[in-house]
């Protein structure tokens, strides 16, 4: 196939990405320089007034802390749960390995709304956990597990796990089984082998997976919205509120760009960490 003519096949997709992705994204940046007039109508201008207002607002600061804290706890929880699964999939000789890998990844293909609904049924006032605890007499009044930070953290952790398992599996590529065998042959117990060989070697993979999980958590909207029941405020929910309910586009745009910058910094940090750990 002649190479010069192949280039033209890029044209439709190129036009699409330019018109429906690149141009609107530029528009988002443009909107951040607009202002909201006293009536709530948007005023087209080129000013940093909205940016200054948003950055000076203590609510922005609170949202940022909320987002970071939520993402951190969800990521750590997901990491702790994903690591054994990924290591298991990496190590196992089971003939069901393929099936088990599919099951681990499958949740990312099932609608987020469906999974959130499942968590409502597990963690709700009359859900699985509370009815079990009550039937064993552990508690008298139901525990509040959803429509608060606990529920959102659990739901978010579950939703990012498939991505983190994939990232960990990809990162384990350099984890040579013979190194563990060498450690065992030199007299180390399985636990010592894990602590001295396996864990140090998988640190770069863990850093990358953590970075990915953190970014996904920061930009998640559905889970905080539904499992938070209107009581959990993070950057993502605020962006959506400002854009739709309040139709305050300049503020929504500034918040979106602000979030994007945070994400980029976090990604850069996790890549740096992964590289540093690899050495």
């Amino acid at each position: 196939m002649s190479d010069a003519r192949l280039k033209w096949l890029l044209l439709p997709a190129g036009l699409f990405v330019l018109a429906v992705y690149a141009w609107p994204t530029l528009g988002l940046f443009r909107n951040a320089f607009n202002e909201t007039g006293p009536t709530g109508a948007m005023v087209e201008t080129w000013s940093l007034k909205t940016t200054a207002e948003v950055l000076a607002d203590s609510f922005t600061f609170e949202l940022t802390l909320n987002s970071l804290w939520l993402s951190l706890s969800a990521t750590l929880l997901a990491l702790a749960l994903s690591y054994p699964v990924a290591l298991f999939l990496f190590r196992t000789n089971s003939r069901f390995r393929g099936l088990l890998a599919v099951v681990a990844i499958m949740p990312m293909l099932i609608s987020g709304v469906v999974r959130v609904f499942g968590w409502l049924a597990i963690l709700g006032d009359r859900g699985l956990v509370n009815s079990l605890a009550q039937s064993f007499g552990l508690i008298t009044a139901p525990m509040k597990l959803v429509f608060n930070w606990t529920g959102v953290t659990i739901g978010l952790a579950e939703s990012i796990m498939p991505y983190m398992i994939l990232a960990l599996l990809a990162g384990f590529g350099q984890l040579d089984r013979t190194l563990e065998e060498a450690s065992r042959s030199l007299g180390a117990t399985p636990m010592r082998t894990f602590l001295r060989v396996t864990l140090p070697l998988s640190l770069p993979a863990l850093a990358l997976a953590a970075g990915l999980g953190f970014v996904l958590s920061m930009s998640a909207y559905i889970t905080p919205k539904l499992l938070g029941g209107g009581r959990v405020f993070v950057l993502a929910t605020e962006i959506f509120e400002q854009a739709t309910t309040n139709t305050n586009w300049p503020v929504a745009s500034v918040l979106a760009i602000y979030t994007l910058v945070l994400l980029l910094l976090l990604l850069a940090a996790s890549n740096l960490a992964a590289r540093g750990l690899k050495r």
């Binding site: 609107p24 994204t25 988002l28 930009s219 962006i239 854009a243 739709t244 929504a252 979106a256 994007l260």
Partner: peptide, 12 residues
């Protein structure tokens, strides 16, 4: 993130 893309598309 689709959150950002969604917002950009809404504005557009």
């Amino acid at each position: 993130p689709t959150l950002i893309t969604g917002l950009a598309l809404l504005l557009f």
